[in-house]
Simulated scan of single mutants.
Amino acid sequence: MKYHKLVENAGRPQGFWGKMMIKAMNKGHSELTDWALAHLEIKRNYNALDIGCGGGKTVSKLCKKIGNGKVFGVDFSELCVEKTKKLNKNNIMCGKASILQASVSSLPFEDNKFDVITAVETFYFWPDKLNDLKEVYRVLKSGGKLLLVFEMVKSEDEPHKWDKVEKSLGIEAVSKDGIVDILLHAGYQNIRTYSKSSTGWLCVTAEKE
């Protein structure tokens, strides 16, 4: 029952079990996020965006790397926005962070705003992945980079590893080739993939022309 209730709240956390899911995500994704961020150059004057900010841990990590820039976080879940604001209270008070409730399909930002955009374990839930990637492309600066981070990755060695989660949530694990292909179709270039063999993790960086 506990597993079922937690999984139900993976896409859009709400209520008690949503709070538990957010807590689990902050803890469970921290090492994955650190590993992925090591593959992305983040300068101290950058403007950054974290899509699907969840409990706010990635926003916090980005704030530590950015000096006089700014970090924005967006999430579709009202509860996630609330929890991210709470975790990043000091960053918000000093003007280093701003958190908004919004969908990746319609980002509330002007064109060419961000130097880097991150999305940790959220791509599976995007409603229209190709067009959503184009929307992300719109708000990236020329030369800006997108970082997509995945734990749920299909592999030949373990083809059924994620079957239970996929069925429960109605989502699909990703493949390296599939992510590269959709990024190319969305207009990105200089796509690079990084895998951690011991965990099966995958992160992908892609650049706006």
Score class of each variant (00 low, 15 high):
L79H: 02
F114W: 03
G170M: 12
C63I: 02
I42W: 03
M25T: 04
L146F: 08
K145G: 04
T205G: 11
H4T: 11
E41D: 14
S142C: 08
K167V: 03
D177P: 01
N47R: 13
W126T: 04
F125T: 10
S106K: 15
T122D: 14
F123V: 15
K83S: 05
T122F: 01
T118Q: 08
M1V: 09
I22E: 14
N131P: 04
Q101R: 15
C53M: 14
D157F: 05
L79A: 05
L40P: 00
E158F: 02
C80Q: 12
S195M: 14
V149E: 07
K5W: 09
D115G: 01
P108E: 09
F150I: 11
V116G: 00
P127V: 07
K27S: 10
W126I: 06
G54I: 04
L148Y: 09
I22Y: 07
V116T: 02
V180T: 11
H39E: 10
Q14L: 05
K145D: 12
G15I: 03
S155K: 08
G52C: 11
D50W: 01
V81F: 02
K196W: 09
G56K: 00
H39D: 07
K164F: 00
M1I: 06
A36M: 06
V116L: 06
M1G: 11
T199G: 08
I191H: 02
V104L: 13
Y188N: 08
E151Q: 12
N9K: 10
D115N: 15
D132A: 13
V149T: 12
K176H: 01
K196A: 10
H39F: 07
L100T: 00
L49S: 10
G95S: 00
D163P: 01
I171D: 07
S155P: 06
T58D: 15
I191E: 12
K57H: 06
L146G: 11
